Simulated assay, not measured.
Amino acid sequence: MNMLRPLAALAMTLTLAAPAWADKLALTDISSYLNGIKTAQAKFTQIAGDGSVSTGTLYLNRPGRMRFEYDPPNESFVLANNGAVGIFDVKGDPAAETYPLSRTPLSIILDEKVDLTRARMVTGHREDGAKTIVSAQDPAHPEYGSIDLIFTGSPVELRQWVVHDDSGSATTIVLGDMQTGIRLGRDLFDFNKPQGGDR
């Protein structure tokens, strides 16, 4: 039996622990919250479509920059910057696998101005106990996939997202406590310095 799946479920339950009921957050309030995040750092747990679990640290510098740094023994990095996403496998191919950020649903929350009220962007908006769940896509390119964003309120906080890519696979990211408004070094998002020496 794969013991990582129950651990992932436990991590998700603990991360989203909150009062039993809350009003659904308005899309305008969620957009304002996301636009208010300039820099952020948080621990994360990633559950891939095959059930495998990874942990690491997420760094965010809006607009357009994000870094997933995985905990050992995984030495991979995923960087988003300058309109591109790069996957770096330190133990494998030294060249990054890259593709346009615009082709991923993560571009929605990395946009310079997040506006979830745009026509055809939000395909679902509901409450689930203490959580508000927003399903969104690029209205011009729904074929690129979609993202489910899970928030808690009082104050508004992003706790989890699920990316559904164009192949039909789903990857879940569960966030720990997020620190915002912190200084992040430029090297963290530099494709030429994937180790990110400047913190």
Rank of each mutant, 00 (worst) to 15 (best):
L110W: 02
L34G: 01
T104A: 14
R62Q: 07
S31V: 06
I173D: 01
F88T: 09
D148H: 03
Y33C: 05
S32Y: 06
D148A: 08
Q137F: 05
L184R: 11
V134A: 00
E97T: 14
A8N: 03
A40R: 12
D23T: 07
Y33K: 08
D128P: 00
F44T: 06
S32M: 09
M3L: 14
I87Y: 08
D93Y: 12
V90L: 15
P72I: 00
V174D: 10
A8D: 03
N2D: 13
R183G: 05
H164D: 14
K193L: 05
D93Q: 15
H125G: 02
D190W: 10
L7C: 09
T98E: 15
K113Q: 11
S76W: 03
A95K: 14
S167Q: 12
P142N: 04
A140I: 00
P6I: 05
R120C: 00
F151Y: 06
D23K: 10
P105S: 12
G197L: 10
D166E: 13
S169P: 05
N2F: 07
K131L: 14
D93H: 11
A80S: 08
P155K: 04
M178L: 14
F151D: 01
T57S: 01
G51M: 01
D138E: 07
R62V: 06
N74I: 05
K24L: 14
M121I: 04
D177N: 13
V85L: 14
A20K: 12
P72V: 00
M66K: 02
T180L: 03
L101W: 01
D71P: 03
M121Y: 03
F88N: 07
T55D: 15
D190E: 10
S169V: 15
A140G: 02
M66P: 05
P94D: 08
A42E: 05
D115V: 05
T172S: 14
T123L: 06
L7F: 13
M178S: 10
A170Q: 12
R62S: 10
D111P: 08
A42Q: 08
D138L: 04
V174T: 15
E143Q: 10
D111K: 15
A136I: 02
T172W: 04
D177K: 15
A42D: 08
G49K: 04
R183N: 13
I47V: 15
K113G: 04
N81M: 06
D71I: 01
L16V: 08
T171S: 10
G64W: 02
T117W: 09
A22D: 07
E127H: 07
N61K: 14
G83D: 11
S76T: 13
K193C: 04
A119G: 00
V174S: 15
G36I: 05
A9D: 13
Q46W: 04
G92M: 15
D128F: 00
A26S: 15
D50C: 01
N2M: 08
K43P: 14
E127M: 09
F151L: 07
G51I: 02
V174H: 06
V114W: 02
K131M: 11
A40M: 12
A40I: 12
G153M: 00
G64V: 06
V134E: 01
E97D: 13
M1P: 07
L27K: 12
S52W: 02
L184T: 12
